[in-house]
């Protein structure tokens, strides 16, 4: 990066460290933090959306829809995350390629499964075989987002379902007495009031989601844990910057990152809880009313 870093073997002390910490590999490491944050920012609203839909389906008066909602939450919640990640990603990958294969290569005569091989026609590969490495990273990232959204959506569905049941019946009855239709009651009373009950559960999920991001590596995304392990391992002079085993320091940096991320989240969620409790028919809302906040 700097001109003075051209020949690392002549450097020592702080100069060496400065050059070491700005190698291309370290820049990849720093970018991977952005990847993780981006994943969180995209996944959280998606998972919340999935959860919301799941909760509505579970409460639906239509029986098949209710089954669907309950089956979704029960199945995903009942399988360990890591198993789901290992299974689902391969299934999703092969399923999509198989579908695409049926569409674009209808006259392909060879079998798709040949023993342990999975062969679709070259046009049906996702991403296409000619795509450069960047698109493979994007592909892995998108698969990660879908998988995380599905898994955490199931947990969120249960939390939101419970929160909807927790809204006092009197509130809904009052709305009905004003002549609101079911939809209006749902939209104007149930949903706005449910959040305060859902928030403790959802904030737990958010923190668990942050901590689940190292699973990214299972999906082929080169995340912070991958780079910490790769950079921290001892290096011989085959590398420009040889060093002994420094994994401890790299993992310490990850520890600080995760602690900071969860600490900042705790604070933000605390404020949100206070804000949502204002004017609500809950003990917290009542306490705020009495204190005159």
């Amino acid at each position: 990066m700097f001109a003075s870093c051209a020949d690392p073997s002549t450097l020592d002390g702080l100069n060496w460290l400065a050059c070491y910490l700005t190698t291309g590999k370290h820049l990849d490491f720093y970018w991977s933090f952005a990847t993780v944050l981006l994943l969180l920012v995209i996944t959280a609203p998606l998972a919340l959306g999935m959860g919301f839909l799941g909760a509505i389906a579970s409460r639906s008066p239509v029986l098949p829809l209710r089954w669907l909602g309950r089956a979704y939450t029960a199945m995903v919640r009942g399988v360990p995350d890591i198993v789901f990640f290992l299974f689902f990603v391969i299934a999703l990958d092969q399923g999509l390629e198989w579908l695409l294969h049926q569409v674009v290569c209808p006259d392909w005569d060879q079998p798709i499964r040949q023993g342990t091989e999975f062969r679709v026609c070259p046009q049906a590969k996702i991403p296409s075989g000619n795509a450069d490495a960047f698109w493979y990273q994007v592909d892995g990232f998108v698969r990660a987002v879908i998988t995380f959204a599905l898994v955490f959506g199931a947990f969120a569905a249960n939390v939101i379902y419970g929160a909807m049941q927790a809204v006092p019946r009197a509130q809904l009855e009052t709305a009905e007495a004003y002549g609101m239709s079911n939809r209006q009651v749902f939209r104007r009373v149930l949903v706005p009031q449910m959040w305060v009950y859902a928030l403790p559960g959802l904030s737990n999920l958010w923190v668990i989601l942050i901590k689940a991001t190292p699973l990214l590596f299972l999906l082929g995304v080169q995340d912070i844990v991958y780079w910490a392990r790769e950079l921290g391992g001892s290096k011989t002079s085959a590398y420009e910057y040889p060093h002994p085993d420094w994994r401890l320091w790299y993992f310490l940096a990850l520890l600080v990152f995760y602690l900071l991320a969860t600490w900042a989240s705790e604070r933000a969620l605390g404020r949100l809880t206070a804000r949502l409790s204002r004017g609500q028919a809950t003990a917290a809302g009542e306490a705020m009313r009495k204190a005159g906040i």
Binding site: P8, T23, G24, K25, L27, D28, E230, G233, T236, A238, Y239, E240, Y241
Partner: peptide, 15 residues
Amino acid sequence: EGAYPPYNFINDQGE
């Protein structure tokens, strides 16, 4: 694999 020098490894440029 990218972790078995001198056969194959990720160099300091990340390649």
